[in-house]
Write a protein that binds this DNA or RNA. Structure first.
Lengths: 205, 205
DNA sequence: GAAGATACCGACCAAACGGTATATTGTCAA
DNA sequence: TTGACAATATACCGTTTGGTCGGTATCTTC
């Protein structure tokens, strides 16, 4: 082979991260199945050989995106913040207030990366489903834990089941995002979340 | 051309319906983008020529599925039933109770056809988005209308906004289905919907 | 500094895709 | 009965797909 223009200095970690990042965006925009490896490569100026050095298959790349990009992102944007408050009602309320205030183009346009992949992939690939489910369960658990502590502290109504309510809250959030996405309407998204706030307040003692 | 084995008797309407039905199932299982025309044809024993006689493009077929299959299906399963009750709280409650009781494999496995397409297609194709939005708006409107009438009849709390609540209820339903789908768990689906029932009851006067 | 491992390159491939072109046949009005 | 058109059939096409492979460059280790 004649002309080999390789990256001057190697940086396998950077290459891997570039690929994960580009794949994340490509999947966000097109879904996993319609995500094009060629487009991902074009957006990273990484070669196909490099890609297949770091990831065995497209599927592996997708699973890595779930575990290494989407998971940590939600961890940062929801879970850690939620764990800080000492009153779960206020914590949830404020967190959602923040989402309402920060409602940006990206959420309205592309929705929730987690939910997108759930709807597309969970019936098609068991590994995807499990990867997504792990994140979902963590989310529900964080909310449930907060509610439980709130019950102990006498802040949350005792006649409620934290696990069930947590499940429902997470479902509602995903639903609000999904509806806002199809309506292409920040207003609908915000109105929807505000009703969720009302519901959350109804859990207070 | 040598071997032309045509259907003895023509039936263009039947052919069209067969295609819509097969396309609906293919899309439900694989999503729109990954839906294969070849597979649809194989499941209908319709020829490619016939398909392209009835539908100009794959996209047209998808839009027809939304308008002629998914729309009417929701109309039948939700909207008409909901319009019958004269107390919206009971109406919604019972309708959801029915969904809880009827929770079948298909809902858990494939989720809601409407929501699936929303998450996949609404950012990618404006016509899809509009077709889906039309159904969504009808859904929200039916619920809102019922709540409004309930307010007039003194059955629903007057200090609530029917449109916002309807939006939120629809979002919650889609959320519950989505979560049950990824959990592959009828139980999670039912627990989630039961919390929605609790919420709905809280709207009563 | 030689050797072996790791990282990267890009041409190539078979399969599947949506879509087209052209031929044929059933249907029905005139 | 026939002419016109709607309906159906199938071979074929260009493109894109995920994936492979032989090769090269850089890095690490001894």
């Amino acid at each position: 082979m004649m002309n080999m223009i390789q990256r001057k200095t190697r940086n396998p970690e950077q290459t891997r991260n570039d690929l994960l990042d580009a794949a994340y965006h490509e999947i966000l925009e097109s879904g996993f199945q319609a995500a094009s490896l060629e487009r991902i490569l074009a957006n990273t100026s990484v070669s196909k050989g490099a890609l297949y050095h770091h990831f065995g298959t497209k599927r592996d790349l997708g699973l890595a995106v779930i575990e290494e990009v989407i998971g940590p992102q939600l961890e940062k944007r929801w879970f850690t913040i939620l764990a800080q408050h000492d009153n779960p009602i206020n914590g949830l309320y404020n967190l959602i207030a923040e989402k309402i205030a920060q409602a940006d183009e990206s959420v309205i346009r592309y929705g929730c990366p987690l939910n997108n992949l759930i709807q597309e992939m969970s019936p098609l690939d068991e590994s995807f489903r499990q990867g997504l489910q792990k994140i979902l369960e963590r989310w529900v658990e964080v909310v449930a834990q907060a509610l439980k502590e709130g019950q102990s502290a006498g802040q949350v109504r005792p006649d409620t089941n934290p696990e069930d309510i947590a499940l429902y809250i997470v479902a509602s959030i995903e639903g609000c995002v999904g509806l806002g996405k199809n309506a292409q309407s920040i207003d609908a998204y915000q109105r929807c979340l505000r009703q969720l706030q009302v519901y959350i307040q109804s859990l207070a003692v």
